[in-house]
Design a protein around this nucleic acid. Structure first.
Length: 602
RNA sequence: GCGCCCGUAGCUCAGUUGGAUAGAGCGUCGGCCUUCUAAGCCGAAUGUCGCAGGUUCGAUUCCUGCCGGGCGCGCCA
């Protein structure tokens, strides 16, 4: 991914290279880098790779090249330094290339693509609580959807709800057998969370009974057997679509779905298609039957599976239990087929934590052996877990922060520490909206800024500090730039016209001269490449790191006493307004790819 | 035991086609609010890049073997 600026620089360098160098402008552009120290120049071209074709030492090539670049208008200075050629850009010309596009709202054109991609993420279980651990997946999947769309793909955002299985049976066991009819009345709000408490209670009770039964306590052994018999009965009735249990299942499931809808709305996440496990379990078993008959799947100890020798440490992949019921894996096969057939997708992405890497390797190998060509374009995006300072999240130990508590504690803290001072000056609605935007930004950036293969320790207190490399820092930087633009508008100060001729724009932007202005122009130029790299690698953290750099450049410019916009005049002022417009747009565009917004003021 | 991931400043982490003196945030110390929001800006200090080999003109980056930590390993999801 190269930018218009890099291409212009590379074209000049390529033209100055000896004909036998064998590098065209695109190849040169790929090699361009930032010098380690801004004092050396704006861009650097390393000459190591030319030493073979030119049969000269890299420093000699660099010296020759620097000499040949004397008359290029885009460069105000060219220096050979060891194997590198460092160029200083004419800031007016560079800014005229970089700023207009992004100031107009888009950081260059996305690649033209025809592929249709599905990103499956979130996948919460109904009848269970939604907590901070689920937020990493949600933030990651949503950011990938946005990044891939920005990178030219047609993307279908898909959710896959776990609405069948043992956890439902445990929850309904508690609901039906343990709760009294009066207790069975759900609260007015957060009914899904309430169901989660029931599930949790049931799960804890079963664990306790299991522990007690190990010590051969006859009462415990009997109680455990009874509880297991009952949950099994519920599960079997559910699978047999028993009318009464199905009605209860449907009613309670709706409570969880209502909670999820509220969570997604608060997070600004929209799904194009929601799959349910309940719509693929039967189809999965039918597939197992079909491919068992074909000899692709085999029987083993009464169960059915497939032998994938490619996975040496665990070749057998079970697809049907001995009792004939389905597994997660069974449903994944039917779900994959549904995705292929219903949406004609070319590429299928699964955002699921890293513990399931082996599982998805098996799923994709199995799909390939079943004859699905799309299996080659199925990708698992693994990520590491979220923990709390007190250790891994465990419902049983009460070591968990539920979504609602997370939201309430963050907004309350933001109001108390930062926003209450605006009470009266701003409307209550704006203060509330601002708290929402900042809390969401803090969570999303926190979940996305770390590489997917790093564990995250979610320390609510630390995340609420909102200092340093955080979402609110980026939002603050954006709000500062926006504030300048607002004041310019109020004062009737206009930016340099982005549709002026390149010559006029170059001349006007030549008024930019300070290091802070130069640094900001160069930083803005990095937006599209950073977004493209994040999309290509399915790694939003790449864009996070870039945006943090951009925000720092923006803050240095805004903070510099000699770069004030309102105190300047004439061409300098018009050039600076365009620069701020572009920086503001770049920050907003980048944040939007992460699913983040910035408040107008904060 | 086998497989995957991690190991870089006191702490948390960037550093992906191998390239200049290894960077950032937090914390510590010291500056900057009569000039566009101090949730900010500037400066200082801090490294056997887990260890040992190998490939290379050049390795934090690639390969091999160790050490330390996390996770996974047929009837859960």
């Amino acid at each position: 991914m190269t930018t218009a600026l890099h291409h212009a620089v590379a074209a000049a360098i390529a033209a100055a290279l000896p004909p036998d160098a064998g590098l065209d402008a695109d190849a040169v552009a790929e090699g361009l880098a930032r010098p380690p120290d801004a004092a050396k120049g704006d861009l650097a071209f390393p000459c190591f790779k030319l030493s073979k074709t030119l049969r000269k030492a890299p420093p000699q090539i660099a010296a020759d090249l620097a000499g040949a670049l004397g008359g290029v208008p885009l460069f105000t200075d060219v220096q050979a330094a060891g194997a590198y050629v460092n160029v200083r850009l004419d800031l007016g010309r560079a800014a005229a290339i970089v700023l207009p596009e992004i100031a107009a709202g888009s950081p260059g054109a996305a690649p033209a693509r025809t592929e249709r991609v599905m990103v499956e993420y979130s996948q919460p279980n109904t009848h269970k609580a939604f907590h901070v651990g689920h937020m990493r997946n949600l933030c990651l999947g949503d950011a990938l959807v946005r990044l891939l769309r920005a990178d030219g793909y047609e993307v279908i955002a898909a959710n896959y709800l776990g609405d069948v299985g043992a956890h439902i049976a445990k929850c309904l066991w508690w609901y039906l057998d343990v709760l009294t009819p009066e207790q069975r009345q759900p609260p007015a709000t957060a009914r899904g969370e309430w169901l989660g408490e029931l599930y949790s209670a049931a799960s804890n009770r079963l664990d306790d009974l299991e522990d007690a039964a190990k010590s051969k306590d006859p009462d415990a052994v009997a109680a455990l057997a009874a509880a297991r018999a009952r949950t099994t009965e519920i599960l079997q009735k559910l699978e047999a679509r028993d009318p009464e249990l199905t009605r209860i299942w449907f009613e309670t499931r709706a409570w969880s779905l209502a909670d999820f809808d509220e969570i997604y709305a608060w997070c600004g996440v929209v799904f194009d298609r929601v799959f349910y496990e309940s719509e693929v379990d039967e189809a999965g078993l039918a597939l197992v039957e079909q491919y068992l008959a074909k000899g692709v799947f085999v029987q083993s100890e009464g169960a059915v599976g497939i032998v994938n020798d490619e996975v040496k440490h665990m070749p057998f992949f079970m697809l049907r239990k001995r009792d004939g019921t389905s597994l997660y894996a069974t449903k994944d096969l039917a779900l994959a087929r549904l995705k292929f057939e219903e949406h004609r997708i070319d590429r299928s992405i699964y955002v699921v934590d890293a513990r399931q890497s082996d599982h998805f390797r098996h799923v994709f190998l199995t799909l390939a052996k079943m004859g699905f060509a799309q299996a080659a374009r199925c990708e698992h995006v693994p990520y590491e877990m979220v923990e709390l300072p007190s250790g891994p999240m465990a419902t049983r130990r009460g070591n968990v922060i539920l979504f609602r508590a997370l939201r309430e504690r963050m907004t309350a803290h933001l109001l108390e520490k930062y926003l209450e001072k605006y009470r009266g000056e701003w409307s209550d609605a704006e203060i509330e909206r601002c708290a929402h935007t900042l809390a969401l930004g803090a969570i999303k950036y926190g979940m996305l800024s770390r590489d997917v293969n790093q564990k995250i320790v979610f320390d609510l207190e630390a995340w609420l500090e909102l200092e340093g490399n955080t979402g609110p820092y980026l939002q603050y930087s954006t709000a500062r730039a926006g504030s300048i633009l607002r004041k310019c508008e109020e004062a009737g100060i206009a930016a340099a016209a982005v549709d002026a001729t390149p010559e006029a724009l170059t001349a006007l932007l030549g008024a930019l001269e300070h290091p802070e202005e130069r640094e900001l122009v160069l930083a803005i130029d990095g937006l599209r490449p950073a977004a493209a790299q994040a999309a290509a690698g399915l790694r939003p953290s790449v864009l996070c790191a870039y945006l943090h750099e951009l925000a720092k450049s923006n803050n240095r410019f805004v903070n510099a006493k000699h770069c004030k916009v309102l105190q300047s005049e004439g061409d300098v002022q018009r050039a600076r307004v365009l620069l701020v417009t572009a920086a503001h747009a770049a920050l907003r565009w980048g944040l939007a790819r992460l699913g983040m917004d910035a408040p107008v003021r904060m």
